[in-house]
Write a protein that binds this DNA or RNA. Sequence first.
DNA 1: AAGCTAATCAACCGCCTAAGA
DNA 2: TTCTTAGGCGGTTGATTAGCT
Length: 278
Amino acid sequence: MGRQPCCDKVGLKKGPWTAEEDQKLVSFLLNNGQCCWRAVPKLAGLLRCGKSCRLRWTNYLRPDLKRGLLSEEEEKMVIDLHAELGNRWSKIASHLPGRTDNEIKNHWNTHIKKKLRKMGIDPVTHMPLQPAPPAPPQPEEEEKVAVAAAAASGNVLAAELIRNEEAFSISEVPMVHLLDDDVLPCDLAAGAPPASNSGIDTACSPDQSSSSSSPYSGSAAASSCDSSVADGECPEWLKWAESMLLDDDVVTGPAPWAFEDPFVTYQRIALFDHQEAW
DNA sequence: AAGCTAATCAACCGCCTAAGA
DNA sequence: TTCTTAGGCGGTTGATTAGCT
């Protein structure tokens, strides 16, 4: 007998999400906050598993997400953090505001791994690649391995190949050791909502950031960034969040916000303020 | 234009862990 | 202390897109 499924899968929809489903989920979460993922699909009128809803929200619908490829700076950070933490993608993601573990994992597997191998660095150990002694390399791998081995032994030609690599060299990557309670600088919290916009103090205290295990920890909510938005300016994420609400949605309170992340609570209050201003 | 291959990334699966009964 | 359950995490899959022949 296997483990019980996380939810009753009979009649549940799978596969890509439709715009309508997204709208339902966003609308529900903005109105009611995040709690009891198992109940979310039912309450939001979705034929999805709660797990699926959570994933869709955290990986795609969250308003604080950055879209697009990782910057070079972010890539370097991922490499450093991976060297320190291994495949603990959620930990790594917590140091990159607006990025999800899934996104970082995908980027690692599709881009960074290749780059490191090209540079003669083992993406698992972060050490110079060694040719595998027992099993001779496959013909198509032969060249790569030879280059890697040469690089490892200081071969000038290989070193030249690496120098010509347009990305970056490992020597350029600064070793940054972020701790859970480190405060990220403002520029790394780009995309995070301004703390001052709603008149609510969301600049988290250190214990708030370190105690949270949510995807937001170490990012928006954990930032002590005090940058503010010019008067009358509406942040992009807020415009987006509002646009996702249906016409007949009513943003009301109180709701079970006690379960929420500080940032989510902030976001909801800010949204409410914003609507009132209108 | 059609077919094939590689690359990308959203989504799923199953295991692990923490919290609560 | 043990059992149950929900949420979280990392690995993997598969649909879609881009690029090449």
